[in-house]
Amino acid sequence: MGVDPSRDELGLFPILYWPIVAGRPLPGAETMRRLDAFMKGGGFVIFDTRDADAQRSGRATPEADHLKQMLSIVDVPELEPVPRDHVLTKTFYLIDGFPGRYDRGQTWVEVLPPPGPDGRGPARAADGVSPIVITSNDLAAAWATDRRGGPLFPLQGSSPRLREMSLRGGINLVMYALTGNYKADQVHVPALLERLGQ
């Protein structure tokens, strides 16, 4: 469903997927403020620069520059590449990457707060869900199907499971937006149940 972040009510949407196209006019300041409010109010935005293919070490792509300019007025938290044990890798499927049309792009997510004093996961006031994910793997291209369910774009790489993996990654992202750190908590559930009734 297409959304115009300058006009539409964003609060209704759990996830925005925002592909970056270099050279398009930058969204206005008002739009970015709305996006900022959306992220702070519990929204979840996936920015996809779709430039994993063009990335060379040390050189920023036009898409990356575009995104950087766009986000310059938004309160973006500190980001890090998705760690191996991040809840994003286990919200539904157990996965180790978020491939799309490309496989080599890095996926960035908000830095996890340091573990609490009791070592039982991070100490945080609320559920502490990252409001932003930045990828360059062109996820939507891998998910896109035609009317008969056939894929629209060829994937780069040889693994036949790549398309399945990109779908699993997408499902995990959606689950993350909906259930937050639910799966991270579940590590503690057996212990919690054990403690009950003692």
Binding site: P14, A126, L178, Q186, L193
Partner: peptide
């Protein structure tokens, strides 16, 4: 999983007096 789930989680997890056991 639905859009309101995290509202519950945020509310119950931010309450220092509550131990939350959550299943989805």
């Amino acid at each position: 999983p639905h859009a309101g789930e995290r509202t519950w989680r945020n509310l119950l997890k931010s309450d220092a007096n509550i131990d939350l056991v959550h299943f989805t």
